[in-house]
Structure formats: structure tokens, C-alpha cells
Amino acid sequence: MGNFQERFYLNFIKDDRWMYMWDGLKITLEVTLFATLLGIVLGFLVAIIRSTYDRTGKMKIMNALCQIYLTVIRGTPAVVQLLIMYFVIFGSVKGVSKILVAVLAFGINSGAYVAEICRAGIMSIDIGQMEAGRSIGFSYTQTMWYIILPQAFKNVLPALGNEFIVLLKETSISGYIALQDLTKGGDIIRSRTYDAFMPLIGVAFVYLVLVLGFTKLVSMLERRLNQSER
């Protein structure tokens, strides 16, 4: 199978094959970014509803709906959810954007995990903080917004960062709906060159670099948030 240099040339340089991975990377990042945003918004809402119910007993019906959402999403594999989103929910929609389908599927999936992370964060804040806010005259919502959530966010930042990493790697199943993400890009190269090692190791390497870079980013942000309190 020749030496390393030759194989590198064959898999990545010849016929501009690196472009498969490059284009795939862009799609992977796009899907991850928008799915994360969707997941955070969804998760955030669900967490607020659930912790409001836990603390005050209000929003009973909303809480029940959230429970169902969490149970279904966390109880089924992401790849099945992706397939259902594409072939069932959007099955009759001609020419639907696969990126949109992936963003929705991964965003809704991630939202369930973000919700539990955020809820734990909110519940970790001492009840005295809520009482102090309310005693000043803030409403429940204002106290949440000005006092509870900023503290909760700081507490859950590491877990949220971790969830982002999980999501980034999870998008590698996008190939199931023939979306050409990074993993699929590597796969196409493999099908052209009949070499498994180079494209797969290459793909793995790119994921690893992304994750390391992002981990660094999160820890920098964490340090900055902590500085404000010391």
C-alpha cells in the first residue's frame, strides 16, 4: 500500500480530495452551532418550567409535557430520532434541506440534556437567593433573571461545554440521511481510494482538534466568570 507520503497524497491531495473533508467540516460546524442554539433555547425553557414546578407547584400541565419530551428523547437513540425526523416528519416534504432536518433533530435531542443540566443548575442555587430577591420586591421572573440564572449559568458552564462536545461528535451520524458532514466526507474519500486508514484517522484527528480547541475556550470563559467573584 506504499509509504505514508504516497498514501497521504492519494487520500487528501490528489483530485483535491481534502475538499470532501473541508466541505463536510463546514456542514458539521453549521449543524452543531445551530443545533446547540436550538438546544440551549429549548433546554432553558424546559428547565425553567420544570424548576418552577418543583419549587412552586405551578405550571403543572407544561411540566407534564416537558416530562414526556424528556422521556421520549432520552429514551430513544439519536440516530433513530434523526431518521424519524427525515423520513417520517419531513417524509412528504420534497427537497427539504437536510441541514435543517439535522439541526432540528440534534437541537431537539440536545435540548433534553441541556434541560436537565440547567434544572440541576437552578436547583443548586440556595433558596435564600430567591427569598432575598422576592423580599426586595422582585417578581418571580425578575428574581430568576437577575439573580438565580446568572449564578446557575456559571455553575453549569462546564456541563454545558461538555454537552456541546457530545453534540459535535453526535452529528457524525448525519450520514444516515445522506448529509455530507465531516465523517461522511471521509467516507467518500475511502470509497474512492479504497484506503480506510488515512481518511478515518484524518477525520478522527479533525474531531479531536475541534474538541480540544473548544475545551480550551470553555475553561477560559469559566476562569473569566470566576474572576468577577474573587
Partner: peptide, 8 residues
């Protein structure tokens, strides 16, 4: 009793 200042 426990002050409940806002730590952030």
C-alpha cells in the same frame, strides 16, 4: 439569618 447577599 444567612444574609442572602447576591454573590455574583
Amino acid at each position: 439569618q444567612h444574609f442572602n447577599l447576591f454573590p455574583h
